Simulated scan of single mutants.
Amino acid sequence: MADLRRPERTFTIRQLCNEFKATPRALRFYEDKGLLNPAREGLNRVYSHKDRVRLQLILRGKRVGLSLTEIRELLDLYDENDEGAAQMARSLKKFRERATALEQQRDDIDNALIELREACNRLERRLTEIRPDLLPRAADYEQVLRARLDGHAEAMLGK
């Protein structure tokens, strides 16, 4: 198997799409946004090792919720002279900010779930008091209503 880390190695759009489970449209989009810069051989795009690494970083950034603008800022910071130190420092800051935001979202979701479970319990208690016949079918209530409405519509049309 060829070493994917060789700087002189090139890749076709199909190879990168297969490797990263991306679409050709996505790669062309990233190219239009200036995130990738493949060479051309006629009409074919030829991606370098650097393009492959950039694509990997783009997809990783998207997975953790970074915007394309944020991803571009991080990619543009790469400098071989400092071994990527400026890029790493900025990435660390961005990743910590994103982790904090995701933790807050998780807390918000946990609180929403608690509220929903409490509301379900209240609704079940109230249904038990006023219409216990509906309680076993509470999960199917929409279907029961739809059947009743369909029956009502048929009765209206039959008149």
Rank of each mutant, 00 (worst) to 15 (best):
E41L: 05
R60K: 14
M88H: 04
R72D: 07
I130V: 14
R63N: 13
Y141L: 08
K93C: 04
G42I: 09
L102Y: 11
V64N: 05
K62M: 13
D108P: 00
L145T: 10
M88Q: 10
Q87Y: 01
R137F: 15
D79Q: 12
L75P: 09
V64Y: 03
V53T: 06
L57H: 11
Q56K: 14
N111S: 12
T128K: 06
L57S: 13
A99G: 03
D108R: 09
D79S: 11
A86V: 05
S91D: 02
L77E: 02
L127V: 14
N81W: 04
I109Q: 04
A85P: 07
I58K: 00
V144P: 00
A119M: 13
L75F: 10
D107V: 05
Y141N: 03
E83A: 11
L43N: 09
S91K: 01
R131K: 06
L74W: 04
I71K: 00
E129T: 12
Q56W: 12
E73G: 05
V46G: 06
S67H: 04
Q105D: 15
P132S: 08
E80C: 06
R40C: 05
D133Q: 06
A89T: 12
E103V: 05
D51V: 04
D51L: 04
G84M: 02
Y47F: 12
D110H: 09
I114W: 03
L77H: 01
V144D: 07
E118M: 10
L43E: 06
N44I: 06
A139H: 05
K94M: 12
H49P: 01
I109E: 03
R117A: 15
I130S: 05
T69S: 10
Q56L: 14
Y78T: 07
I109G: 07
E103I: 06
G42R: 05
S91V: 01
N111R: 11
H49Y: 12
D79A: 10
Y78D: 02
L74N: 02
Q104W: 13
R63D: 15
V53E: 04
L113S: 08
R90C: 02
R96P: 00
A138V: 07
L77K: 03
R131G: 02
T100I: 04
A86D: 13
R96L: 08
R60S: 08
L135F: 11
Q56P: 10
R63G: 08
E124N: 11
R106Y: 09
L92D: 10
Y78K: 08
Y78C: 11
A86W: 02
L127W: 00
R72Q: 06
E124Y: 02
A119R: 10
E80A: 13
R131L: 09
